[in-house]
Amino acid sequence: MTKRVFTGFIIVLFFALTPAFLFSVEVDWVSGNVTYSHLKGEWKDLDIGMNLAAGDIIKTGMGSEVSLREVDFEIYIQENSTFTISEKYEDGDRKSSFMLFFGRMKFKLARSGKKEPEIQTQTISLTIRGTEFEVGSGYDGSTLVLMSEGSVTVKGDKSELVLMQGEGTEVPFGEEPTEKFEVITKVIDWDKWFNTSQESIKGNEIVFLNKILVRFQAIDAKIKDFERIRAVSLKEKEVLLKKRDESKEKGNMDEASGYSKKAGEVSKKAFHSIVNIRFLALSSIGLFDMAENIYKGVEKPSGEQKDIFEKIDVIYKDIEDKYIRAGDRERIEQKAKKKKGCLKPY
């Protein structure tokens, strides 16, 4: 497989309101050159037995692999891949999410598994239903999914496609999943597939940069929506807490308890917004890396190419300045130790 050249720094998001309970996965096996980074920390060697949390990014080098394990599933990350652990809230429920920025991975859900995490690439998201499958994410943002067992729903922005055992699909960057094929009828040469995804960019840099810009604008709009929800929720919380205190002063403890409960509910909504903003900001990291590699791959960028990339850079830097901050992993771990099933110190 052609080795990818990564440009710039990959930065990971941290919020002051990090939850005391964090989803984590354990490093089960490592082969070759595998590193990880958390927050704005340095890149370190990844070792067996480590526990990785939301916001950790993994890189595998040439000829290197790593497997991650949780009670309900296993993930095998192949060589020359960039993979991120994240989480988000949907309809009030916390959901673990894994982002394959570039490279190839295999996923296997335990037969008794109840947790069904989401897999994200630059193009699609995968909703899992008791399954085993393989995913590739190319230089041009395209995604290839191959099913071995079970089923998976491949979701684009507007449509979705259900794959069953023995089926596959390939989705170009910025497009919707529409067609599937029988895996047995299509021999996949992964080295060739990645090389083709790299070659497809040449001469089409403006097309790809424009698609990335549209995606960044959508991410930015969603972040602003969650910020509005958070601001409204926090203001509502203040009003409810004031009413609670007034009820307590009057000796109406039942009424005060009701206001406290409502304040807790809107506070939770504000917290969910923060987690979802973090999820969106994390997804922008790989997208910017893709844009930067495309732009820097042009020997003499045209004025139009430069203009599009600068617009992408402005949006990303704004997200970085507002939501991506240095943090302290050790402090997070100390908090997490207080909750069952959280990060373990290493």
Rank of each mutant, 00 (worst) to 15 (best):
D254M: 13
K40F: 02
I184R: 13
V187N: 14
E265M: 08
V152M: 07
Q78P: 00
K268W: 01
E182Q: 08
C342L: 09
H38T: 06
S64F: 03
K235Q: 13
E227H: 05
P172E: 00
K243S: 15
K95A: 11
V162Q: 07
K296Q: 05
K235L: 09
K242L: 11
V232A: 12
D313N: 15
S302R: 06
G297F: 03
I274Q: 09
K335G: 11
S142I: 09
N51P: 09
V207C: 02
R230H: 03
K186F: 07
S200L: 03
I219L: 15
K202V: 10
S37C: 11
E236M: 14
I324W: 00
K248R: 14
I188E: 02
E134N: 03
M253C: 08
K311L: 09
E116R: 09
D91Q: 15
I274N: 04
D72G: 00
K250G: 07
N204T: 02
E132L: 05
A16Y: 12
S284Q: 02
K306S: 12
S137A: 03
V275D: 01
D289Y: 03
G203W: 00
D45T: 13
F101Y: 11
V152N: 01
L240E: 08
V27W: 05
F216R: 03
W190E: 00
